[in-house]
């Protein structure tokens, strides 16, 4: 088992894919974090209709938003998602899955080893993401906005730590989609398309219909729910209905997201253990 895990981790870090994706993600994360930081104190960011303005005043929650800006915008979270898809579909595309199953014929062992490798890679990405976001936002907050960076707040670091869990779950989601679909192009399009298009469509529909409590089950919303543990709207009068789009605690959102990933990955792993490798 140790050998199979080491093999899977080696697989991830012996092609250029991992750092290419990491580089693209980091640049994007830094840019979005800079953008968020630049919005500080902007009175026009009021969501209207009692939604509140998280940038009105720098709170701990606002700092959490800025340092996780890429995740909240559901942009950088696409990188671990796509990476998860590519890690497994690449094996089918290049037929290396044959060599994998020949060295470890117990396919459940292979699947569990891959999950461990996915978790390790997800954690690496999360750390890089946090570093890039801080590098992008801190100079703007400090030198342009002349505000405290909030880096002495434990809740800011807690939020970045939870980001690691979020990245691992998203990579696992991608990995599961890849196991189920196997065709690399189709799987990437479906995973990214579902995140991008379907989530946004659902958000719009739920908002228009005012189904705020349905919003909190959307993966992107759950992720925001996880990393923002302090209310950035603290002290503002907010329509209580819109508060219904989040769970009360970050770990509740995490559990829901983990259940999504677990259902998908167990289904995918089960199919993988049954299928012929031709």
């Amino acid at each position: 088992m140790i050998g199979a895990i080491r093999s899977e981790i080696r697989k991830v870090f012996t092609t250029r894919l991992w750092w290419g994706m990491a580089l693209g993600m980091s640049v994007l994360a830094a840019l979005i974090a800079m953008g968020f930081a630049a919005l500080l104190g902007n009175a026009d960011m009021d969501g209207g209709e009692g939604q509140g303005n998280p940038f009105a005043r720098l709170t701990v929650g606002t700092a959490q938003m800025i340092y996780n800006a890429g995740i909240i915008q559901q942009m950088t979270i696409l990188f671990p998602l796509a990476m998860g898809v590519l890690l497994i579909t690449g094996e089918y595309r290049h037929k290396t899955i044959t060599a994998t199953f020949l060295s470890t014929p117990n396919r459940w062992v292979v699947m569990v080893s891959k999950l461990v490798a996915v978790a390790v890679t997800g954690a690496v990405y999360a750390v890089l993401h946090a570093a890039a976001s801080l590098a992008g936002a801190v100079p703007i907050i400090k030198f342009v906005k002349h505000q405290p960076t909030m880096l002495n707040e434990p809740k800011v670091w807690q939020s970045l730590g939870i980001g690691i869990i979020a990245f691992i779950i998203w990579m696992l989601l991608g990995f599961s989609v890849g196991m189920l679909i196997r065709n690399q192009i189709a799987a990437v399009l479906l995973a990214v398309g579902a995140t991008f298009v379907i989530q946004i469509a659902l958000s719009i529909i739920f908002t228009v219909k005012e189904w705020y409590s349905a919003m909190k089950w959307i993966p992107g919303q759950l992720t925001t729910n996880m990393v923002i543990t302090s209310n950035p709207l603290a002290g503002q009068s907010v329509d209580p209905k819109s508060a219904a789009q989040y769970f009360d605690h970050w770990w509740q959102a995490a559990i829901v997201l983990i259940v999504y990933a677990a259902v998908l990955s167990v289904t995918g792993a089960f199919l993988t253990t049954r299928r012929d490798v031709t």
């Binding site: 199979a4 697989k11 250029r16 060599a99």
Partner: peptide
């Protein structure tokens, strides 16, 4: 995208 040597190292690890 993986070198032949790394391909073998992946198998060797397993």
């Amino acid at each position: 995208g993986r070198s032949g040597r790394d391909h073998l190292r992946v198998l060797a690890a397993a």
